[in-house]
Computed example of a mutant assay.
Amino acid sequence: MADFYGVLAAATTYHADRGNAAWSADGVTDAQRTAALVRASGALDGQYGSQFPGYKTGGRAQALAWPRTGAWDACADEDIPDDEIPVQIENAAYELALAELVRPGSSSPTVTPGRVVKRQKVDTIEREFFSASEGASMSPDAMRPVLMAVEDALRCILVPASASVDLLRV
């Protein structure tokens, strides 16, 4: 089973088509690109996996969240075959991999919950932090960076986090 979504050559074409020069920059090796794809795929599953429709086709033994059984594309109003990894997942992985290539670890940063900066003054250094009582989410997921290109790629296949279980199609 694959360690990442997509194919290295397809990722290279994807980024070339979009003018993302950092993917093919001088000195960047295929090993670095592959490592970025592996990190991106893991982060994609970690951040969005609970919103993927259906269930892992291979059960708990399956390393990545896709392929899935009972998944569907809401925009096309079509089932996604049990053996398919949707192009949306691959494209999201390619987008996140670019961020990972440029700054390794950026898609899964280390955070300290409860230390969200509300205001920071530079001269005579002053910092103020948000608190849970002010409505700031202190969960680690709320502190993850959001890459809008990933959100855009996934919008048709994600189940809204607030959706009730009876709205999920199985």
Rank of each mutant, 00 (worst) to 15 (best):
Q47Y: 07
A71Q: 02
T13L: 10
A161I: 05
Q51E: 10
R60F: 15
A149W: 08
G19V: 03
V122P: 10
C156M: 01
L8N: 09
G58T: 02
P104E: 04
V116T: 12
G70Q: 02
I85Y: 01
V150P: 00
E128C: 14
Y94Q: 05
G27K: 04
I157F: 08
V159C: 00
E84R: 08
Q120T: 09
T29N: 04
A21G: 06
A21C: 09
T112W: 15
V159E: 00
S108A: 06
L44V: 02
A76S: 06
D45Q: 06
A163N: 05
V165W: 08
T110D: 13
G19K: 05
I157R: 06
L101P: 00
D79T: 12
T124I: 09
D166V: 14
A99W: 09
A142H: 07
G49Q: 05
L147A: 06
V28A: 03
A76W: 05
P53G: 04
V122G: 13
M138L: 12
S108D: 09
A11N: 02
Q62W: 09
A22C: 14
D82A: 12
P53L: 04
M138V: 13
R127L: 13
E134V: 14
Y94A: 10
S131P: 08
Q120C: 03
W23A: 00
G46D: 03
L154M: 07
L44W: 01
E151A: 08
G105N: 05
C75A: 09
A31Y: 12
N20Q: 13
L98N: 03
A61Y: 13
V38M: 03
T69C: 12
K56P: 03
A136Y: 07
D83P: 01
L8R: 12
G114R: 09
V7G: 11
G42R: 09
V87C: 13
I85C: 01
P140T: 15
V122I: 08
R119I: 11
V117R: 04
D152C: 01
C75Y: 12
T69H: 15
Q32D: 09
G54E: 09
A40N: 00
D45T: 01
A153N: 00
S133P: 04
P145E: 03
E90H: 13
C75M: 10
A31Q: 14
D83T: 09
Y55R: 15
A161F: 11
E100C: 12
Y14C: 02
A74R: 05
A63C: 07
A161T: 04
A25R: 02
N20G: 10
D166T: 15
A99D: 11
P86A: 02
D73W: 03
A153P: 01
G27E: 04
A10P: 04
L8S: 08
W72I: 10
D79I: 12
K118N: 03
A99T: 13
M138G: 07
A161V: 07
A21P: 02
A163L: 01
G42D: 11
S50Y: 08
L147E: 05
A43T: 05
